[in-house]
């Protein structure tokens, strides 16, 4: 599982983004984190080649939410053979936008003195959930009513053993805010909101049946295509 931060933010474990075989000896493992409101691309670079590596730089292809490096990739060079280094690259969302498939896909180019290497990775959309995403209750009710039923997506999360308060607390660590809670016929219904960096708001209803490990998440958003990615974040946050 991932590493829980003090604020409760879920950080997925690093995965292999660039195998050394494809990077002429450069291996990159990475993940994404949101720390104090800043999206970070966190990478472990390993030099598995027989010569030193210098002159690192990074560039993103245009992507769904305009993610872009907020500064240069800082690698203390040279990176000697067998040396491993952790680097953290702050991102902003001021870059060029192009809808990707899947929506959270990011195409990356990393350059060093040997060559330019390309890889794709996917970021949890929760990296884009802003700290002030708690919607006013009246606005929530009006928006919920206003978004057409066709825009509602429903998913199930199995094998979840938290009660609704624990679930609410965990999600709040990822900037998913509970606005209201009601209990109807033994089901806790949590009404929650989140806001993405580009202003898109997502409204959800999380149903937790006492004694049942299966949750039901219903998502309403004017941009319905984000629902699948948001659901993935619910699942990751609640199961880790």
């Amino acid at each position: 599982g991932g590493v829980g931060m003090p604020m409760g933010t879920f950080v997925p474990p690093k995965t292999l983004w660039l195998p050394a075989m494809k990077g002429k000896g450069l291996e990159i493992m990475g993940t994404f984190a949101r720390r104090a409101g800043v999206i970070q691309m966190e990478m472990t670079l390993t030099n598995k080649a027989m010569s030193v590596m210098t002159d690192f730089a990074i560039q993103f292809n245009r992507n769904s939410f305009g993610l872009a490096p907020a500064g240069p990739l800082q690698v203390p060079t040279p990176l000697s053979p067998n040396q491993t280094i952790d680097v953290s690259l702050p991102l902003n969302n001021g870059g060029p936008v192009m809808k990707m498939e899947p929506l959270n896909n990011l195409q990356v180019a990393v350059k060093n003195n040997i060559d330019v290497f390309y890889f794709s990775c996917q970021y949890p959309i929760s990296m884009l959930f802003v700290e002030d995403g708690k919607m006013d209750r009246q606005v929530f009710l009006a928006t919920w009513k206003d978004i057409p039923n066709e825009n509602e997506a429903q998913f199930q999360i199995n094998d979840c053993h938290l009660n609704s308060d624990a679930a609410s607390n965990k999600l709040q660590g990822s900037n998913v805010f509970t606005i209201a809670k009601r209990t109807v016929e033994g089901q806790d219904m949590l009404y929650q909101s989140m806001k993405l960096t580009n202003g898109i708001c997502v409204l959800t209803e999380l149903r937790v049946q006492t004694g049942s490990p299966t949750y039901t998440v219903s998502l309403k958003c004017r941009a319905a295509e984000v629902s699948q990615c948001v659901f993935q974040c619910y699942e990751a946050a609640l199961k880790n």
């Binding site: 209750r137 009246q138 009710l141 919920w144 209201a180 009601r182 109807v184 016929e185 089901q187 219904m189 009404y191 209803e205 219903s218």
Partner: peptide, 20 residues
């Protein structure tokens, strides 16, 4: 009064979702 109204509105929403 507004707050009471909102409390009531959420209760109605939850009720309507459980028993459509």
């Amino acid at each position: 009064e507004l707050e009471d109204g909102l409390d009531e509105a959420f209760s109605r929403l939850a009720e309507s979702r459980t028993n459509p």
